[in-house]
Design a protein around this nucleic acid. Structure first.
Lengths: 192, 192
DNA sequence: AGCCCAGGTTAACGACCGCTAACGGCCCTG
DNA sequence: CAGGGCCGTTAGCGGTCGTTAACCTGGGCT
């Protein structure tokens, strides 16, 4: 046996297909029968694994947010003391994420409002902490720029990096390198 | 009487409210009764003005795409011969649009798949032509960069500029100037 | 004055959808 | 070999939603 990812559990299969379908046609636009069919079971069978359709979306969104934050914190700790390297590492990590999980990226800021109050609050809190990682390091690099401006700039760069769902017949590495340059270029223009 | 916008027709009222609601809760998440209530009539009354819910979305998306393209063409013609000025003008125009009509921006790439085949095709064609305006001028400014890369970069900058739905307690002018700098910074990094 | 039509109303239908109920087979355990 | 979860199935309920039908009304044209 290899050390690579084990066979995905049924739950994981379902989440993966649900993410794809939600991203493609929207949360309300996908029926439970359709999600079931995508994993080879039918409709109500899903309820052996999830409390309901909402629960799938909630687990997806909380999951992404947690992984983003955890990854970001790891990268900040790893390169601590060198803001330039921290920012580069955050950018690289975000690009990897955007390219690996475009469906989740799409859902992340599109279907948040479909969550129950508690879940939505949790996701927003995780998002805010992730943004704060970026804001902190960008402010170190550009101390003369106001915090509100930096925050808007960080969101804008997220928009730039998350634009990958829009096609690209260009090869993974080329897109990575391009996005990296664009993001650095945008941040570089903060002080100019 | 003034030369300013006349009192909006009922159709325009409906479109405006529908755009707001669709952006907030998604096409499938908004009922016709809700749209009707937003303009003071109720549910089925909308059918005196539109063939159906789909028709409202179609008119919204075709309308934005046409306005974007028309505005873009106008700006290209206006500054023809000076690629730098053309690009600046395209950026400024797109920023204005993003700040003035955030609801439409949101819908623009979020609910496109809910359209009928014919409408979707039309919208995509208009979008493609708008992108091409940008690609052409950016290629003039960076002749050494491949076309595919430029196209991805343009989409990425759209993502950056369209990120404005995400808050900003920063004042219109400050956001405008910031986005302008970020977009120029990103494009500037194309050659570096 | 009479009429008509634009622009509303309410009632109701049919389809769909999320979810529950009731049931069954397979595999693992004692 | 008995039994009990785990993981499916199908049937069906209840609610919602887009749309249509049928009806009403007030203002402008003839």
């Amino acid at each position: 046996m290899s050390t690579r990812a084990a066979a995905p559990t049924r739950r994981e299969q379902i989440l993966s297909e649900a993410a794809r379908l939600f991203a493609a046609r929207g949360f309300h636009g996908v029926g439970v029968d359709e999600i079931g069919a995508a994993v080879g079971i039918s409709g109500p069978g899903l309820y052996r694994h999830f409390a309901g359709k909402d629960a799938m979306l909630a687990e997806l969104l909380v999951g992404i947010s947690e992984r983003l934050l955890t990854g970001g914190r790891h990268r900040v700790a790893e390169a601590a003391g060198d803001p330039g390297r921290v920012l580069s590492s955050l950018i690289d990590g975000h690009i990897d994420f955007a390219l690996d999980d475009r469906a989740l990226i799409t859902l992340h800021d599109r279907e948040l409002d479909r969550l129950r109050e508690a879940d939505r609050k949790l996701v927003r809190q995780l998002q805010r902490q992730y943004v704060e990682l970026w804001v902190d390091v960008v402010r170190e690099l550009h101390p003369e720029v106001g915090e509100a401006e930096v925050r808007v700039a960080v969101h804008a760069v997220f928009g730039l990096l998350n634009s990958t769902p829009h096609l690209a017949a260009l090869g993974r590495e080329a897109v990575e390198s391009l996005l990296r340059r664009l993001a650095h270029g945008a941040f570089g223009a903060l002080s100019a």
